[in-house]
Design a protein around this nucleic acid. Structure first.
Length: 254
DNA sequence: ATGGTCGTGTGACGA
């Protein structure tokens, strides 16, 4: 079973990229982030054999899931704050597995309420995942975490000091998630440096190989035991008018 | 060199 996460940076601007990826890569599940608008062309994907569910808001954020089999929606927002209306979370079941697709807040600048929102969001996510672990629900959580886990996950750690993606408080909250017994799927099979999922549009970051690894899959123990492979496909980042992110692919036994 | 590039929606703001 092939599961993919990809921050597409606008469904309107990247429609043909997404259709190309679905046609060529044929994932069972595709989870995307940053739809960046209210419109979602579900009929375009129905023609390709995919059921979809999109959580949208005007101009910003937005997450969606594409599945070859039926999607049973569990939650359309992260529990824990009824005043939080940002479209960053969808939890669903497909093929008897619980999936969570997240667009975790960026958090910059760190001296503003944007960073406290990120940390509060991560604490709410911890509580949700703790509940799933307590109930022994096997799950896969994937998405744009906006977290650089370690020095080797960025081209130049010095330039990321103090950034919300690399902040000690962010690292501490990320480790707290892992300490629920979760596994960073990519790191289980590849411990080397220079593996990135995002390259900035500015300063020739892609051409110069200056990326960061911020898109992740975290697996509960039951799914970790079933993992067959996890890798990053840098190809779509080299396409014409690309997203600034590239897909991360997870394969598990069925 | 305190810049540079995208996308939304059409003026700033977010990343």
């Amino acid at each position: 079973m092939k599961i993919v996460s990809w921050n597409i940076n606008s469904i309107k601007a990247r429609l043909e990229h997404v259709k190309k990826f679905l046609s060529e890569s044929k994932p069972d599940i595709l989870m995307v982030q940053e739809l960046k608008g209210l419109d979602f062309p579900e009929n375009e994907f129905k023609e390709l054999g995919y059921e979809t569910k999109a959580i949208t808001q005007k101009a910003y954020n937005g997450v969606a899931v594409f599945s070859k089999t039926h999607i049973e929606v569990i939650h359309t927002k992260l529990p824990g704050d009824k005043n939080d209306n940002q479209a960053r979370y969808i939890e669903f079941e497909a093929q008897n597995i619980r999936f969570i697709n997240i667009y975790l807040p960026n958090g910059n600048p760190v001296d503003t309420e944007k960073f406290s929102y990120k940390l509060a969001w991560m604490e709410r996510l911890y509580k949700r995942l703790k509940t799933l672990r307590k109930e022994n629900i096997a799950f896969v959580i994937g998405g744009d975490f906006n977290i650089i886990p370690e020095n080797k996950d960025c081209y130049d750690p010095k330039t990321w000091q103090g950034d919300a993606l690399f902040h000690p408080k962010t690292h501490k909250a990320f480790l707290k998630l892992l300490h629920l017994g979760l596994t960073d799927a990519f790191r289980m099979q590849d411990t080397s440096e220079d593996n990135y999922t995002f390259w900035d549009y500015q300063r020739g970051a892609w051409q110069n190989g200056n990326g960061i690894r911020i898109d992740h899959f975290l697996l509960s123990p039951e799914i970790t035991d079933r993992m067959e492979n996890c890798f990053i496909d840098p190809t779509p980042r080299g396409w014409e008018k690309p997203s600034d992110h590239t897909p991360i692919i997870l394969e598990i036994s069925t």
